[in-house]
Design a protein around this nucleic acid. Structure first.
Length: 653
DNA sequence: GGGACCTGGGTAC
DNA sequence: TTCCAGTACCCAGGTCCC
């Protein structure tokens, strides 16, 4: 599916006067296969009218303002580059880079890009031929995945909200997505592709790249004939049409496959002159990686609209963008890449209901855990994604030192991240796991990892950990949460009495809720204690279980009451009933503090880290140690890698 | 100074 | 009347720690 099928954006550059929709630039009106003859102004007006005043629209305005600000800064930067000698300096750098890329250019390959035509919609039409001549969209009232060509005549297209599509085309028929069906047909197409290139590269369910250099030579036929044959075989196997492009590299092949869509093909000769002619007028938006924002920046700051402009202005780009990201695209063979992350997210009607949030987290944790289990993955970094009622997206991440997979572990950490953000009104919650282990068995492969055992002297059987995997001290590595300094080795190794272990148990469990099992401590009793408190949901009194050892239980008839159901009776801090975890941690703190005071002569060093921990917690669990300051960069944001352009616009061509 | 980490953002499909 | 997805990758730039 084409990259232009995306959401709309406000334009910064036009002043629209009495026709405000004209400034609501939307790619919905971009020329696209099947959309010839669409009344673009009407579509633009409808989209604007349906959007204006909404929170989504306001958020778009906010983003637009940010981009405009960035553009202004970059214009100022550009103005400072006027001195001839400065620009010539960057021109030399750019020329050198281009020459390097030219030297490694390979024009001997023939890459074929196949793109199925309106794939989801076409599959649905196969199942229900009556849809063939009626406007139809696959998706929901919230979002459309793809639209058939009848619907496109009205301006309906992929990534358009369904309610806007309904306004454009009241007759529109919605068909829910059925990925099982699409996967089946995708498999059929891939069987065909395999006959031409066993190592073909599937880009998505409906797109693939094939290196047809060898098969053309072996069979002694032209790339045009072979492409025609392949498309016919895809049709025979599936009943679906596709479009294709052939070029010396994948990037260009993809551009070519879009030219004669639907059910067509375009071939670009492996000839430098022909290629240079082809790209001279090629809009930069056609280059993979250049989206609407980058396009706008390049146009508004540098007046760059085509790939030729790009090369001509290379000195500016070299001066203002970071020289990184070499090697994007290219004529290389596709390489197998390992998965970097796995995620799921769900959108719902904006709400502040914390019980609902928790339920969503439970669902997401279970889904994510199941997905990870299928691929035998264990991850270390958990990222919570939130979209507020005003469409602002926030992420909060947590990197553990131990790999996790279970829904229980995921939920535990996700809940902690979410609670730090409460109260909040949300319309989306997502969870992403990344930083996967190599061996996929959940073991920790980092030998430098610090665990409790690292702190224990050989032979110190007072800290005989049974369950190192769940040692809570590992979670101290959650650097955004706890930045206290670990106690010195020699002091830690002196841990040798029950009271100290109780303090450790309480303080650590307060952080993450795990259980440390000790050979001397009554671990089961402690576990029961914490679980009971959680089940109560609301802490009003702390009581140790009956089977607690005498040496510890003597300390622990501590009482903490939430006055008027929200105020701590010990220090007066206010925590509403919904802050369950925070309340538990707060109570733990007071308990541990009291115990520490009682035992201060022997183990006073513990006070500092514990208090530090509580300060961190009270400051907010989800706050990053790397919390961003307002950006003051001259470019005020992301640098666009100049080599990305050179690589794609020159090396790849 | 560099690596690890966190956060926001852009992009593709 | 209201309504704008889900998955995955990559990058820049910030802080913190060694």
């Amino acid at each position: 599916m084409a990259k232009s099928e995306e959401t709309s954006s406000l334009s910064s550059s036009s002043s629209s006067g009495g026709r405000p929709w004209e400034s609501y630039h939307t790619v919905y009106t971009n020329a696209k296969a099947g959309m010839e003859g669409v009344d673009k102004e009407k579509v633009q007006r409808v989209v604007y009218e349906m959007s204006k005043g909404s929170k989504y629209f306001q958020n778009e305005q906010r983003k637009e303002a940010y981009i405009n600000h960035k553009i202004q800064n970059m214009r100022a930067q550009r103005a400072n580059l006027n001195p001839t000698h400065l620009l010539s300096h960057y021109q030399r750098i750019a020329d050198k880079r281009i020459a390097e890329l030219e030297a490694t250019r390979d024009l001997t390959r023939k890459w074929l890009h196949v793109d199925m035509d309106a794939f989801y919609a076409a599959v649905e039409t196969l199942s229900n031929p009556s849809l063939k001549s009626r406007p139809m969209a696959v998706g929901t009232i919230s979002m459309i995945s793809t639209a058939n060509y009848e619907a496109r005549k009205f301006g309906v297209r992929a990534a358009m909200p369904g309610f806007i599509a309904c306004k454009l085309c009241p007759e529109l028929i919605f068909v829910p997505t059925d990925f099982k069906k699409y996967t089946h047909y995708s498999d059929l197409t891939r069987k065909v592709f395999q006959e031409y290139d066993p190592n073909f590269m599937a880009a998505s369910l409906d797109e693939a790249y094939l290196d047809i250099t060898s098969v053309c030579k072996e069979r002694g036929i032209s790339d045009a004939e072979l492409t025609e044959e392949l498309r016919q075989n895809v049709y025979k196997a599936t009943g679906l049409t596709c479009s294709a492009g052939v070029a010396p590299n994948r990037l260009l092949a993809k551009v070519c496959s879009d030219i004669n869509k639907p059910n067509g093909q375009f071939l670009l000769p492996n000839d430098r002159a022909a290629i240079m002619t082809f790209i001279s007028s090629l809009p930069i938006r056609k280059i993979g990686g250049i989206g609407k924002v980058t396009e706008q920046i390049l146009k508004d700051v540098f007046e760059i609209k085509t790939c030729e402009d790009l090369l001509q202005k290379s000195s500016f780009l070299c001066a203002l963008f970071s020289p990184s990201s070499a090697g994007l695209g290219g004529t290389d063979a596709p390489q197998v890449r390992s998965r970097k992350s796995m995620s799921n997210e769900r959108t719902f009607s904006a709400t502040k209901d914390e019980t609902f949030f928790h339920q969503k987290l439970v669902e997401l944790s279970e889904m994510l855990s199941a997905d990870m289990e299928k691929e035998r993955l264990h991850g270390r970094t958990l990222t919570l994604k939130l979209k507020t009622a005003s469409f602002e997206v926030k992420t909060r991440a947590l990197t553990l030192q131990s790999y996790i997979q279970s829904s229980k572990d995921i939920l535990k950490h996700a809940s902690k991240l979410l609670k730090a953000e409460l109260p909040v009104s949300l319309r989306l919650i997502g969870l992403r796991m990344s930083h996967f282990n190599e061996d996929k068995d959940g073991t920790v492969s980092d030998p430098t990892q610090r665990t409790l055992l690292n702190y224990i002297k050989p032979g110190d059987d007072n800290m005989n950990l049974v369950d190192e995997e769940h040692s809570d001290l590992k979670d101290n590595s959650e650097s955004h949460c706890y930045t206290y300094t670990d106690p010195p080795l020699d002091l830690l190794s002196e841990l040798n009495d029950h009271s100290e272990q109780v303090v450790e148990q309480i303080s650590e469990s307060a952080q993450v809720g795990n259980t440390v099992k000790s050979s001397e401590f009554d671990a089961q009793g402690t576990e029961t204690y914490f679980l009971e408190r959680r089940n109560q949901g609301q802490l009003t009194m702390i009581d140790f279980p009956e089977n607690e050892t005498e040496s510890t239980s003597s300390h622990h008839k501590e009482v903490l009451i939430w006055l008027e159901d929200y105020k701590c009776s010990v220090c007066g801090v206010e925590l509403p009933p919904s802050f369950l975890e925070e309340r538990q941690e707060h109570a733990d703190f007071h308990l541990a503090e009291k115990m520490q005071m009682e035992e201060e002569s022997a183990h006073s060093y513990r006070n500092l880290p514990l208090k530090n921990r509580m300060r961190q917690k009270e400051a907010g669990v989800g706050q990053s140690k790397g919390k961003k300051k307002p950006k003051h960069s001259p470019l005020n944001g992301k640098h666009i890698p100049i080599d990305a352009f050179f690589t794609k616009a020159s090396h790849n061509l």
